[in-house]
């Protein structure tokens, strides 16, 4: 069901470096899993915006603002950064010369 070029495209979208052997395995595994989930197509239902049960929790929104005092966790978090410079994370340039 999935081709090698599909796997290559998905791996790049997902930012996953994969070796060729694994790609071949994924072609087989994903096709088997998608073959199973294809049974969804048999069900004759459509999504409705109607609320099924008003007792069920829905996402609670909060006002935009500071959840806590600024800088409280900065050092503890940055201490775990692979590469830092002061309070910045160091990453490679997105646009290369």
């Amino acid at each position: 069901m999935l081709s090698k070029s599909d796997i290559d495209k998905l791996a790049e979208l997902a930012r996953l470096g994969l070796v060729d052997e694994e790609k071949a395995g994924l072609e087989r595994d994903l096709s088997a899993i998608l073959g199973y989930v294809d049974k969804l197509q048999e069900a004759k239902v459509e999504f409705t915006d109607e609320l099924i049960d008003e007792n069920l929790p829905v996402n609670a929104m909060r006002e935009d603002g500071e959840p806590h005092e600024s800088g409280l966790y900065t050092e503890a978090l940055l201490a775990q950064a692979p590469k830092r410079k002061g309070d910045y994370l160091v990453v490679k340039a997105i646009i290369e010369k």
């Binding site: 790049e12 997902a14 930012r15 996953l16 470096g17 994969l18 978090l77 775990q80 950064a81 692979p82 590469k83 994370l89 990453v91 490679k92 340039a93 997105i94 290369e96």
Partner: peptide
């Protein structure tokens, strides 16, 4: 691989992501 956790460098930013996650 940028903020915390394993970072494995590649040839450029995209390859950094691909290696660290892969």
């Amino acid at each position: 691989g940028m903020r915390y956790g394993v970072y494995l460098p590649g040839a450029n930013l995209l390859k950094d992501y691909m290696r660290s996650r892969g």
